[in-house]
């Protein structure tokens, strides 16, 4: 038994047709990859974990049932980044990132840093609805960073990004987890980045299939069973930041 409770604990989470009796515990300071085929329940699980989607079962942050935490405080503890970045109104990039400070009384702390981390400083005054899809997504991630929430739940943050920004997001997630003790959960499809992560959670048809370190979990047998692909350890293109 550890002295501090897990940052995220899910017991028996069930959402009809999407998640079935799912249990999961994540400790502090981990970078967790959530993988599974399309429709396996990754986005649903992230929203349940974020306390945004009603589900049967219990979700606890830091040992506290989410339903018992006041909404403003929830905004300081956890943040969720959606898969799609759509904006109807033309808020400036800075204004959207500054929304990350809403639960902190709009104090603007860390907004400039978040903009810089996602290469958005020069775009700061541009309206978000005029940006490209990848840029809009970086705005959402910067807003999540600005919240300084210890539990970060990002739904497919890498998919819309170019290779450099994708690597930077992984670097940032590592810094948040290993440097600041946050836990970052990332849903993803590209298993080639799995080696960057501390833990992998595999979903299959709304159920937890496996969880553990990438080498433990991503075995050829599991990949064949869950994704229907054969895995080879052939040398390929390896990319890293200079």
């Amino acid at each position: 038994m550890s002295a501090t409770p897990d940052i995220l604990e899910i017991c028996g989470a069930t959402v009809p047709d999407r998640l079935h009796d799912l249990a999961l515990r994540l400790p502090r300071g981990q970078m967790v990859g959530l993988v599974g085929p399309n429709g396996s329940g990754k986005s649903t699980l992230l929203q349940v974990a974020a306390g945004l989607l009603p589900a049967r079962g219990v979700v606890r942050w830091d040992g506290r049932a989410v339903g018992s935490i006041p909404v403003v405080e929830r905004g300081r503890m956890t943040t969720w980044v959606p898969q799609e970045a759509q904006f109807e109104f033309g808020f400036s990039v800075r204004a959207v990132v500054a929304q990350g400070r809403f639960a902190h009384g709009d104090d603007d702390a860390g907004v400039d840093e978040a903009l810089a981390r996602f290469d958005l400083t020069t775009l700061a005054e541009r309206p978000v609805n005029h940006l490209s899809g990848g840029e809009r997504h970086r705005v959402l991630l910067a807003r999540a960073l600005a919240t300084q929430a210890p539990l970060q739940l990002w739904d497919e943050p890498l998919a819309p990004l170019d290779v450099r920004h994708a690597l930077e997001v992984l670097m940032l997630a590592r810094e948040l987890t290993h440097g600041r003790g946050s836990t970052v959960v990332i849903s993803l499809h590209d298993l080639r980045v799995a080696h960057c992560l501390d833990a992998i959670v595999v979903l299959q048809a709304g159920r937890l299939r496996a969880a553990g370190s990438p080498t433990e979990v991503l075995t050829p047998e599991l990949l064949l069973d869950v994704f229907g692909v054969k895995a080879h350890n052939a040398p390929g293109l390896v990319l890293e930041l200079p």
Binding site: Q47, A50, L52, V71, V72, E73, R74, G75, R76, T78, T79, W80, P82, Q86, F87, E88, F89, F91, A95, V96, Q99, G100, F102, A103, L140, R143, T147
Partner: peptide, 15 residues
């Protein structure tokens, strides 16, 4: 402001 950019996002940010 937050609601006009998405209700789930707004709730996640503490609204």
């Amino acid at each position: 402001d937050l609601l006009s950019l998405g209700s789930r996002e707004a709730q996640s940010l503490g609204v």
